[in-house]
Amino acid sequence: MKLAGTASLPAPPAEVWSLLTDPSRLSRLLPGCERLEPDGPERYKATVKFGIAAISGKYAGTLEFAHKKPPNSLILKIDGKGLPGFVKGEGRLELRAKAGDTEIAYNGEAQVGGLIASVGQRMLDAAARKIVHQFFEAAKAELASGKGAASEPSSLGQSHARGK
């Protein structure tokens, strides 16, 4: 499964970079993240409970940063499994300043296996997009609260993903 798109975050790249690479803050961005703790350099153990409506599952695994070029690009690797199956993926995030904001271009590929792969095809693409969407929405909220401002109403139109 491929996932690529862009998102715009209302802060300069340096600030976005520090948000994305700070595990304590990153855990707040990951939808359903219950636990994120260091497991070696640039590597974290994570437990995530993700679900859409009645469909939900708990996944345990690792999250890893690679090829960090602050504040321009990094590669994010995830590897997790749970009762509904397993996910292994890698994505490249590129940050670019754009009129005081940061435009993030992401491009990744994930392998999905087990139950979710065999019976969840119809929903997988949309579910992945939803995760990405929630991630960037949470990032916006986090940036807003980091500025000390009251959390602003999120605008859903700003990030868009395309999947294949």
Binding site: A54, I55, S56, G57, L83, P84
Partner: peptide, 21 residues
């Protein structure tokens, strides 16, 4: 909790254990 009415959306999900209310 999940509501069960006709069951034609919920039960297939429960059968596969995608839903475990």
């Amino acid at each position: 909790a999940k509501l069960l009415a006709g069951g034609h959306s919920l039960l297939p999900l429960m059968k596969l254990r995608l839903a475990t209310p």
